[in-house]
Each structure stands twice: as C-alpha cells, then as structure tokens.
C-alpha cells in the first residue's frame, strides 16, 4: 500500500499540522511516512501545501507531480492541484470560498463543509480535523486508535486536553463527507 496525498490551502488553515497528524498516525501503524512542505515565499499570504506519503515500503521520492488524493481548501489550490489527481484518484474539497468547483469526470470528488461544521462546533481551529475525518472515511488507511496515538504524539502536552475535541471533529468529518459525482462509492 502506498498513498500519495497533497493537502493544500491557505497558510494558517492548519494544512501542515493536518499532514503531520496523518504522518504520525501512519508511524503508529508501522508505516513508512514522508511529509514535505512547500515553504518559503509561497507561504506568506499565499498557498501552503504539504505532500504526505504513507507506505508499507521504503518511500522513494517525497516530491511528486501527481497524487492519489488531493485535499483542497481554497480556490488557488483548486486551480493548481485539480489536474494533479491521478486518473481514478480522489479529490476532497471544502466548498467554502470556492467559486470554480472541480469538473473532472475521471476522478472521485467529495465535499466536506469543514469551515461551516467547525464554526457550528464552536471552534474554527478544528476545521482541519473535520477535513482529516472526511479523508479517513474515504481512505481508512490508519486505524482509529492510531489516529489518537498520532494526535498525542504530534500535539504538545499542553494541548492534550483538546484531544477529545479533535476526535469529535474527526468523527464529524467522517459522518459529513458527501460524494459529488459518484453516489455509488459511499
């Protein structure tokens, strides 16, 4: 099993930390992982993105052109990454702020209203965990217990009291993700 993922959005949306929690969860499940951020000038006010790879084998390139899954959280990232999903791959996006919705017919497209749900839950910051939940529902590549372990490992101890809230957000995401063009898959 090798899963190649791009997570892309605005700097400050928790893109990098979502990737980190996913990577740590992978480690807890004995997988090889790599996490490669796009950093530097691109990050200031623009898009932030991170490539995360989870695999049963040694990972070759941490830097990729095409992905199994793209998790897209703003319009700029949609413009850049919709075309990078492999044929038959998956695109998950938050419709908040999206003016041009994805149009590809050869991939599976899902929506998760992460911003809206997180706001309703009373904490906008857990938006990224709602989105992570949506991804894990569609691609259950790490077990629930390992996600909890991953959260514990990647959050510093002073935030450990927030773990139940994060789990709640992940569950919310799992229950709320909706297919757009492919009803038969869920």
């Amino acid at each position: 099993m090798t899963e190649e993922i791009i997570i892309a959005g605005f700097g400050g949306q928790g893109v990098l930390s979502m990737g980190k929690i996913l990577a740590y969860s992978g480690i807890m499940q004995d997988k090889e992982v790599s996490w490669m951020p796009s950093y530097g000038p691109e990050m200031r006010g623009g898009t932030a993105n991170v490539t995360v790879i989870l695999s049963d084998d040694r990972i070759s390139s941490p830097y990729l052109k095409v992905y199994d899954t793209a998790i897209i959280l703003n319009q700029q990232s949609m413009d850049k990454f919709e075309e990078t999903v492999k044929h038959g791959g998956i695109l998950i996006y938050d419709p908040n702020g999206i003016s041009h919705h994805p149009t590809r017919k050869d991939i599976k497209i899902y929506q998760i209203k992460g911003t809206k749900l997180a706001t309703e839950m009373g904490n906008k910051k857990i938006f990224n965990m709602v989105v992570l939940g949506a991804f894990l529902k569609i691609k259950p590549i790490v077990k629930h217990e390992n996600i909890i372990k991953g959260l514990k490992k990647s959050l510093s101890e002073r935030y450990h009291h927030l773990i139940p809230l994060n789990i709640e957000a992940i569950t919310m995401g799992m229950n709320s993700v909706t297919p757009i063009n492919n009803e038969q898959y869920v």
């Binding site: 990577a23 480690i27 090889e32 992982v33 790599s34 490669m36 950093y39 990972i59 941490p62 830097y63």
Partner: peptide, 9 residues
Amino acid sequence: GLIGQMMEK
C-alpha cells in the same frame, strides 16, 4: 533544503 526541511520517520 529538501532533506533538511522534510519530515520522516
């Protein structure tokens, strides 16, 4: 910069 900035196990 790539090997320095990326995270792995």
